[in-house]
Design a protein around this nucleic acid. Structure first.
Lengths: 209, 209
DNA sequence: GACTGTGAAGCCATTCACAGCT
DNA sequence: AGCTGTGAATGGCTTCACAGTC
């Protein structure tokens, strides 16, 4: 399917460029140069051009890029030209916060359901959702045609939940638990490790002392 | 101060190794090889040894590493041999979730305070903390000798809050807002961009269709 | 003159492969 | 025999620099 391998760093920057372009559109900008994008998001202009070059030629030499056009192209490249159905497993503090976060919806992710095992919180209302029991997982994934699973359970249950998500047919997993998970290579997978991020800060703080 | 530049990827892995070693300690393991660590966290054994080699020689040839000893060394390298005082700005869903997340405390981060501008949530109780008004920032940073600031406010206020944190004397910032922030080069800084992470999933899902 | 698109060069991280210990 | 520590080789991302276009 993919002819050239795209660096992950490039994909992350494309996401950031697209958000910046969205902001520029709201401010009424019509065209922009790679140098201005670079300045806006804190990279080099060559980097911006190289990132875009993986996918085609979007600009006009001597002029720059049409903001709205480039934005649409990037959204298409990122697969955000349609919506993704998502389920959150774990309705503790973090899971609840993710379920209520508007930013996901705005960028094309529908949070279709949130699940937990704890009977004390099953039934709780979170915005327009209600926390449902974990054993509904398989049914909900089928019913809503869910592609993405988000793991927000304690480390000890993370691998177990992962396997349930895979069995239910989820194609991609975003893991917020502080545990290394085993997933088959055909599954799209990412970790967001909150502690690791704080610890990188700690490491750098400890250096300058 | 730092004689050799350490790759950020190495620092992130050290954090993961240390957590894995902690788990092994609880399971009662005494020694471990680079190959076993590698298997446990999903990297190559050469990678593990190279990462450790930046900081010294911690193992015994022919034998491996003493789990508890390596764990202590890594914690020291990561600057986790003492505690860091931390403040969270923004007590919305995400900020509240972060304030209540036990994992930070366990790894050596004291959440000393959480602030917001919204009068409707100022005074709310979050565990043992109470949400305080943003204008207390300067005082609290001094009072608690706070080194780390966590930004959990909407994108539109993120740069403003950043500058207030810097002015108050914070040395490191972890940014959860979906906005590129300008910070001076001597400040330790990291982004945790939730949308970007989901969008990388989306990109990869879109590839295989 | 301004700006894009891109091959080449440079740089950095990972993997390889083996010498050196136990 | 088993495993660490490490120089050398590899691979991949970023920067440079310039030809091409408006």
């Amino acid at each position: 399917m993919k002819v050239f391998k795209i660096p992950e760093a490039t994909v992350m920057r494309l996401s950031i460029y697209s958000r910046y372009l969205h902001q520029l559109m709201e401010e009424g900008e019509e065209t922009i140069s790679s140098g201005e994008i670079a300045k806006g998001v804190g990279v080099s202009s060559a980097q911006v051009r190289k990132d875009l070059a993986y996918f085609g030629e979007f600009g006009t030499r001597g002029v720059g890029y049409k903001v709205s056009e480039l934005y649409c192209q990037l959204m298409k490249i990122l697969g955000l030209d349609h919506r993704w159905n998502t389920i959150i497993v774990g309705a503790g503090k973090l899971g609840s916060a993710l379920a209520l976060y508007q930013g996901f919806f705005e960028r094309g992710f529908n949070i279709c359901a949130i699940l937990d095992v704890n009977p004390n919180i099953i039934g709780n209302k979170l915005g327009s959702l209600r926390v449902q029991p974990l054993d509904q997982l398989q049914d909900l994934v089928e019913q809503y045609d869910i592609q993405i699973g988000v793991i927000a359970v304690p480390a000890t249950h993370a691998q177990d939940v992962t396997e349930q998500l895979l069995e239910a047919g989820v194609k991609a997993i975003l893991n917020f638990s502080p545990r290394v998970l085993k997933v088959p290579p055909d599954i799209v997978f990412r970790n967001v490790d909150l502690s690791v991020n704080l610890e990188v800060l700690s490491f750098n703080l400890a250096l300058n002392r």
